[in-house]
């Protein structure tokens, strides 16, 4: 099909839509923030924010709800990305989780609940943010397919899937009562492939862990886990083995499974992703519960 210069490509349309959404929020919210998790989706979202408000820097801070268990390479890029964008970076650690030493090895799902779910609520309350951008996409998971771009949260941060506002055309109703907040998902209509293509096309910097390299790993419960620092408690007889690995998604390093791979460039990563036969989130331990678990987590306030 011949394209004339007046027809936007799918990536141009997606980009314009995301920019439109971000500008609506900035024009209507009193205290917006961008949740920044340092993954590839966050990287894309931050890049789009720079475009939306250019030549001004994005007029809101970045917020990282940290668990202290992310990969070291993620912390490096996080600080650099905020600096490069000229944005304030807020890092929140749940003080209760900190005090109790909550970690993914000893506390199972409590680790996510306390550091991420509770930590996010604490941070939003602490700073009084009334709108928070998140990088979730509708193609990630069934319950997300129906989430609105502007998703309302009650004063105690709960999501009510039965009581969502209809979203027509590109008109977003951003009105809310005092105490209520909105989560805004500018990447709603992007797919994983769109994200990768956009990163490729725009030359967006991402964490090197997405690319293959020899890294120390152990095999546990069917997942390849990278031994990223000396807090990793090795079981008896367990010895880290150097493998050529990379990550399809990034989270807390003890919970994130790697894939064995030789893909060291972006086209190779995309090639591998397209040739692979399992869906993206398989490497993440959090989703292995019942298929409706994400919906439950969202109702409780997990992003």
């Amino acid at each position: 099909m011949a394209l004339d210069e007046r027809t936007l490509t799918h990536l141009q349309r997606l980009e314009a839509e995301s920019i439109h959404i971000m500008r609506e929020v900035v024009a209507t919210a009193t205290n917006p923030v961008m949740l920044y998790s340092v993954g590839k989706d966050s990287a894309c979202m931050l890049h789009l924010a720079k475009k939306a408000f250019y030549p001004a820097p994005p007029p809101f801070p970045l917020l990282h709800v940290d668990t202290t268990w992310k990969f070291r390479a993620m912390y490096d890029l996080r600080d650099k990305a905020a600096r490069d964008a000229g944005m304030e970076l807020l890092v929140h650690h749940n003080p209760e989780a900190m005090e109790k030493g909550i970690n993914p090895f000893d506390h199972g799902s409590l680790h996510t609940d306390m550091w991420k779910t509770d930590g996010l609520k604490q941070a939003l309350t602490k700073y009084g943010f009334d709108a928070a951008f998140g990088g979730a996409r509708r193609d990630e998971e069934k319950s997300r397919a129906k989430e609105r771009v502007f998703s309302f949260r009650s004063a105690n941060h709960r999501w009510d899937p039965k009581n969502q506002r209809p979203e027509l055309w590109n008109a977003y109703n951003a009105r809310k009562a005092k105490g209520e907040s909105i989560r805004v998902f500018p990447l709603s209509n992007w797919t994983e492939l769109d994200i990768w293509q956009y990163i490729h096309l725009e030359g967006i910097e991402i964490v090197p862990l997405y690319f293959s390299a020899p890294r120390p790993t152990v095999e546990r419960d069917g997942l390849l886990i990278m031994v990223d620092d000396d807090r990793f408690p090795l079981r008896i007889g367990e010895v880290p083995v150097e493998r050529s690995i990379r990550f399809r998604t990034l989270g807390c390093y003890p919970l994130t499974g790697a894939v064995e791979s030789t893909a060291a460039t972006l086209p190779e990563v995309i090639q591998e992703m397209l040739l692979t036969t399992t869906s993206e989130r398989q490497g993440r331990a959090i989703d292995h519960d019942a298929s409706a678990s994400m919906e439950k987590k969202k109702q409780e306030g997990y992003f």
Binding site: R138, D139, S143, K146, P161, T191, A292
Partner: peptide, 29 residues
Amino acid sequence: VDGLAAEREQGITIDVAYRFFATDKRKFI
């Protein structure tokens, strides 16, 4: 394509769900 838990139980879709696919020529929503 049946999304939320409530709907899966009732066996009907009660909201708007957006699905994505692509061919060599187009991306579809």
